[in-house]
Each structure stands twice: as structure tokens, then as C-alpha cells.
Design a protein around this nucleic acid. Structure first.
Lengths: 214, 214
DNA sequence: TAGATTGTTAATCGATTAACAATC
DNA sequence: TAGATTGTTAATCGATTAACAATC
């Protein structure tokens, strides 16, 4: 029996983490539909993976099932939320108040998971001063002081490519622990800060690759 | 020597395809900076992979380098564009004129790659009739006829979860070859249609997982 | 030519799956 | 109890890397 998220944690791959995100969403749906228990076979079927994969993924964190019965939907959902760190609230600062930034700001999925934007920064005078929800768009020149006084956990980059590195550098200076970068450039970042890059074009390019090859 | 995209194409993994997207962007940058040749070592360094990985990825499609010299930046960029199917123009229909749809519609990266939205559909009467760029937002009720008359290659789903499957079914009926789904549900689709799911929350959940585990 | 770098093979690494004893 | 399903080990599969002959 292993404990959740501890020193003895075996190397958990990004593959496993991403599948846990999937299981979490499926379990939330099942819970909503008043399903009480689920087997690894059923969960795998709904998630498009084998039952062995489901059990293996969960086994990195503990024994959550009952032999002969399966898993309690509600309990497993909560367990996975805990594993993924979704029981906390995460504060985020948005850099870049363009249409992508706006879409992320208003994205319901983030709020449901406990991710909240508490600050928005942009350089465009036409945008500064406006408000999204109850957050005012501030000039980037105020960002460093503002974030020193009231820190966030995560920085989200939706600036143009040319501004991405400077934005990340600023985020690192004010002590963010994680960066989600939507600008299509590789940014340098100290190894103790977590970084995830999201490139919206990659999925489309993969589609066109396979569509071209028949 | 292998030919590009042909019957004898070895199984090319999604990993390789996604890295090709990365090489393409790096090569475009290098070209812009008037760099003429690049070695697999340098390309790997810029892309965060080993030189062997770069050469292996390219070797699925042919011999594009010169021993002792490396690769011609411009030529390799064009070759990869051809491989990824970015030399064509791809027409896309957008279903869901919310803030995410809007962000994708105006996303420059898509246009640069040859992906164009030619149609926008929504069910919200408040949105129907408005225009983005020079495309008018049409009611979904008109979608099937409209797309029969003037087809698109790719359908993009930014509807709510509850509408995603019906939207995909419609897309399949009008003959799209690929679907890019942003709704956080698994949709069923015939196996001859290519499908890519993008879930914006997954990258954030991965961040919070690793941030929680220190 | 000598040095550099490719293209490819073989070795390694890591992720997935099959199988089954444990057990509810 | 008998049937179902977990948790885990060992086997398999596939992706990455190291190494090097070929060659510019």
C-alpha cells in the first residue's frame, strides 16, 4: 500500500497524469448520473484505455478499489482530485488580454477545477483600465510590484512570441511556481519552476498530416 | 531512400508528427533570421530533443541532409511543410461562437499554416447575424445545407459538452475529413474520420499535480 | 585530404498489456 | 460459496538513444 504523493512516490509519467485528468472528468460525469460504483473495465471503456492501464495508473498512488466490486465513483473522483491538486485553489495571473486570454479567463473548466485568474496584464493602452468580470486589466509596468504584494501560483502567457521570454522572466522574479505558455516559442525557465507549453496549431497540423496521407 | 507520404511509409507515430510541428516552427524562425544551414545537433538543441531523435524523425520521410554539412534551412522547412500537409489550404467550419471560438477564429498561427475558417455556426439568436472578419455567424439549423453546398475539410467544435456529439454527427454527415474537438467529452466518430481532442484544462492539471508533489 | 555530420542499425529504456493469485 | 474484479508481476511492445560506417 502506497501513500498519496509522498517521498516514496515512484516516477509517475506525464502519460499517467494526463490519463488521471481523463478519469477525473469521466468520474464527475458518472457521479452526476448517480452511478455509484465503476470497474476498471468500464472506466477504461469510457476513457479509451485498457482496464490494466486504469489499474496500473491508480496503483502508483494507492489501493482504491475493492476486489470483486470495483471503485466507488465518488471516492475515486475525490481521490484523483486530491492527487491532481484540485482540492486547493490556485491563483493565476494572465499576461496578454487578447482574444485567447479572454477565452481562458472566461473558461468554465478552469473555475470548476479550482483555477482562478486574480490578475490581468497587458501593454495595450486601449485595453488597460477595462474590466473582465471584476478584474481590472492593469499595465504590465505595474505587474512586478502588484504580484510581489499579492502573489499568484501560476502565470499564464498569451502574449505575442516576442514578449513571451520577458514575461516569463518577470513571473519567475515574482515567485510563480508554474507557467502555462501559449506563445509558440520555447522559453527558458529555472528548473524548479514547472512549465507546460500549449500550442494550438499542433493538433491541427497533426490532423492535416494524417488527412494528407489519406 | 524513402519517398514522402506513400504506401511504403513506415508507421509514423504521433510523437514524431508533433515533433515535426516543432521543427517546422524552429526552421521558420531560423529562416527569418537568415540562417542558411542547420545540423541535427543544433535543431535538436533548439527543440529540446537529441540529434539522433531529429535524424530518426526525418528518416521516416527521406534523406534531406548532406553529410558533413547538415540541412538547408529553407529546403527542410518546405519539406516538413509538405509532410505536414501545410502546402494546401484547409477550409474549416467553426461550431460555437463563444469566446474560445472567437480566439481560434482570430488566431494568427492557423492562417500562417494555411487553415482558414470559412463558416461559423451558433444557436444563440444574440450571436446569429453578427460577423467576424467577413464571415457571418449562421444558425446551426442552416449548417447541414450550407456545408453540403460548400464543403469544408475540418470541423472545429467549441460548443458546450451537451452539444458536442450532435455537432460531430452533423460534421460527419456533410463529409468533413477531420475534427478538432475542444469540448471536454469523448465523442464517437467513424474510424475513417480523423479526430483530435484538445482539453485546455489538462495542461493546468498537470501543472497542479507536479506543483502539489513539490 | 581531414573534419563534420548524416542515415541507420542495434542496444536501451520505458510504457503498455496480459495474466493470475488474492480476495471481496 | 461462486463470480467478479482488483493489484501486481512478468512479458511485450514501441520509442529513444548510442554508436558508427558512409560520405560530403
Amino acid at each position: 500500500m502506497k501513500r498519496i504523493i509522498e517521498g516514496d512516490m515512484e516516477k509517475v509519467s506525464e502519460f499517467t497524469v494526463r490519463r488521471l485528468s481523463g478519469y477525473f472528468r469521466i468520474l464527475a460525469d458518472l457521479e452526476q448520473n448517480d452511478v455509484v460504483t465503476v470497474s476498471s473495465a468500464r472506466l477504461g471503456e469510457l476513457g479509451g484505455v485498457t482496464s490494466a492501464q486504469v489499474r496500473k495508473d491508480l496503483s502508483y498512488f494507492g489501493n482504491f478499489g475493492t476486489r470483486g466490486l470495483g471503485y466507488k465513483v465518488s471516492d475515486l473522483k475525490n481521490t484523483i482530485m486530491k492527487i491532481l491538486g484540485l482540492k486547493k485553489e490556485w491563483k493565476m495571473a494572465l499576461f496578454g488580454a487578447g482574444s485567447l486570454g479572454r477565452a481562458l479567463f472566461f473558461h468554465d473548466g478552469f473555475k470548476e477545477d479550482g483555477f482562478f485568474f486574480t490578475r490581468i496584464f497587458d501593454t495595450d493602452p486601449a485595453k488597460i483600465g477595462a474590466s473582465w468580470g471584476n478584474i481590472r486589466i492593469q499595465p504590465v509596468s505595474e505587474a512586478e510590484e502588484s504580484l510581489q504584494n499579492d502573489p499568484v501560483n501560476i502565470g499564464v502567457v498569451t502574449t505575442p512570441k516576442s514578449a513571451a521570454q520577458a514575461t516569463v522572466d518577470l513571473m519567475v522574479r515574482v515567485g510563480v511556481k508554474g507557467v502555462l505558455n501559449f506563445a509558440p516559442v520555447r522559453v527558458e525557465i529555472p528548473s524548479e519552476i514547472w512549465l507546460r507549453n500549449v500550442n494550438l496549431a499542433v493538433a491541427l497540423e497533426s490532423l492535416s498530416f494524417y488527412m494528407s496521407s489519406q
